[in-house]
């Protein structure tokens, strides 16, 4: 709407790219440290453990490795609104485009994380085979791990985002209530994906429904989309506060 050259990107894409440029190093460092730590732990357990292990009940990577990246993405989600919303709105971006851009960023972070994670699980099974352990549970297929982890990671960052947005938008008491409630959808997601995480942490004994994988994936997608929609609902009219962080 102005005479000057407008070669700018779409605002939502711009938000995603700007957020990516501030998050990529964090992501890289996180996974680098995480993978190294896991390798060190595995080697230690194998070679220096009290007893020599010759068989695994279940995949160590899937059971123990899943928790940390979820917390990492949860925290990134929590910080999203308080740290970045005002930066973008004060630079002439609508809340809607901020939500769209943040969603793209979180999808990208979840995708990259799930790729690394699924690859790690694949690698683990190869190593276990090579050493000659017997794994009783067997490994779920690569693609299934990828899809489930993608939605779980997206779900955790979406949950964190919801918590951050709630504290930004409402009085802190409301924020606390929403924070507690926000673990309901993610718990359902964990059950659907039969994943190690909050379900194990709370020592819930829930049997995952014996649906086929496709139906679970659809439900996971729906819940993830609902988290994004809830965020948009909270942020679409929010007032920009004085600096919080």
């Amino acid at each position: 709407m102005i005479g000057a050259p407008q070669t700018k990107k779409h605002p939502a894409v711009n938000v995603a790219l700007q957020l990516w440029s501030t998050h990529r190093w964090t992501l890289l460092w996180y996974w680098l440290i995480f993978v190294l730590a896991m390798i060190v732990i595995c080697i230690f357990m194998y070679s220096a453990g009290p007893e020599k292990i010759e068989s695994l009940d279940e995949s160590y990577w899937l059971e123990s490795g899943g928790f940390s990246p979820k917390i990492f993405l949860l925290v990134i989600g929590i910080l999203m609104t308080p740290v970045s919303l005002a930066s973008f709105v004060s630079n002439g971006v609508t809340r809607k485009h901020f939500v769209a851009g943040s969603t793209m960023l979180m999808a990208a972070l979840a995708l990259l994380s799930s790729l690394v994670f699924a690859a790690g699980s694949l690698l683990e099974s190869l190593v276990v085979d090579w050493i000659g352990f017997t794994v009783k549970m067997g490994h779920p297929p690569f693609f299934r791990v990828l899809v489930e982890q993608f939605f779980l990671f997206a779900g955790y960052s979406g949950t964190g985002w919801l918590i951050g947005s709630a504290f930004y938008r409402y009085h802190w008491r409301v924020g606390v209530i929403i924070s507690v409630l926000s673990f309901v959808p993610i718990t359902i997601m964990e059950i659907l994906a039969d994943s190690a995480g909050i379900v194990k942490l709370l020592e819930l004994s829930v049997t995952p429904p014996a649906w086929n994988f496709g139906l679970s994936a659809v439900l996971l997608a729906v819940i993830t989309a609902a988290l994004v929609a809830l965020n948009y609902y909270m942020l679409r009219k929010v007032s920009i506060k004085r600096k919080l962080i």
Binding site: P11, S84, A86, S87, S90
Partner: peptide, 13 residues
Amino acid sequence: NQVCFIQENGHIA
């Protein structure tokens, strides 16, 4: 994106 509002403490993280 046609209205730039600058406050003293700014809004950048």
